[in-house]
Amino acid sequence: MTTHPDAQRAFEEMMPEPTCSVDPSGFLEMMVAGHIPAHAPLFTADQLRTAMQAVWDAATERAAKAWLPIETAPKDGSKFLAFRRGEVATASVFVRDDGEIWSFGRESAHVDVFPDIVPSHYMPLPEAPAAAIRGTK
């Protein structure tokens, strides 16, 4: 991502680089251009580790929800979201003795007859909204 130089400069003026140090009691001290008083303990090393683990967990959870190669899609007829040439639709595939049958949106075809039906990427369907599960709007 490219940032416009004026926007970058304005951001740096508003949010200068923080300075950090660790005091003998194990507390991290941080000052951001006088916004946080000097020697005000903010986090212990354990608290920082916990926060960093939470960030890592969120990032890996998000990555797990990313588009995956279509070769790894389930081939048991279960539905998933699929991407094909700029379109996103529900899709499914199942294997028969004579090959794969793909469904993409409202289209269905044998892969040998219409190979372009196969999407390039997929992701599992998200969970249904809690209200839908409870039967309310």
Rank of each mutant, 00 (worst) to 15 (best):
G105H: 04
C20L: 09
R62S: 07
E17A: 12
V32F: 01
V88C: 04
V118R: 14
P124W: 08
C20T: 05
S103H: 15
A45Q: 08
V32A: 12
R85H: 15
A109W: 02
T60D: 02
P41D: 01
W56M: 11
L42E: 09
V113A: 10
A10Q: 10
G34I: 02
V95Y: 12
P24W: 01
P74V: 02
P5W: 00
Q47G: 09
A10E: 09
W67M: 00
A73S: 05
A132E: 15
D46A: 12
D6L: 05
I117E: 04
A82G: 01
A54C: 05
E100C: 14
A130N: 09
V93R: 10
D97Q: 09
M1W: 08
T90S: 13
M15L: 15
D46G: 15
V93A: 05
E107G: 10
L68Q: 09
R85Q: 14
R96M: 02
A91N: 06
F11Q: 05
G26L: 07
I101S: 08
V111F: 12
L81W: 13
E12K: 12
D6C: 01
F114D: 11
L28V: 11
T19M: 05
R49M: 05
A58N: 07
R106Y: 08
Q53I: 15
L81E: 09
H35S: 14
P16N: 05
R106P: 11
R9S: 08
D112T: 15
G135S: 05
D6W: 00
L68G: 00
A54N: 04
A59G: 07
G99P: 05
P119W: 04
F83K: 13
T19K: 10
P74L: 02
A51M: 08
D112K: 14
A128M: 12
E61Q: 13
K65S: 02
F80G: 06
S108Y: 09
A38I: 03
R9K: 08
T72S: 05
A91K: 01
K79F: 09
C20Q: 04
K65F: 02
A82K: 00
V88E: 12
T90P: 08
E127H: 09
D57Q: 07
V95T: 15
P37M: 00
L125T: 07
G26K: 06
D23P: 02
T44W: 02
T44A: 01
G86F: 01
R96V: 01
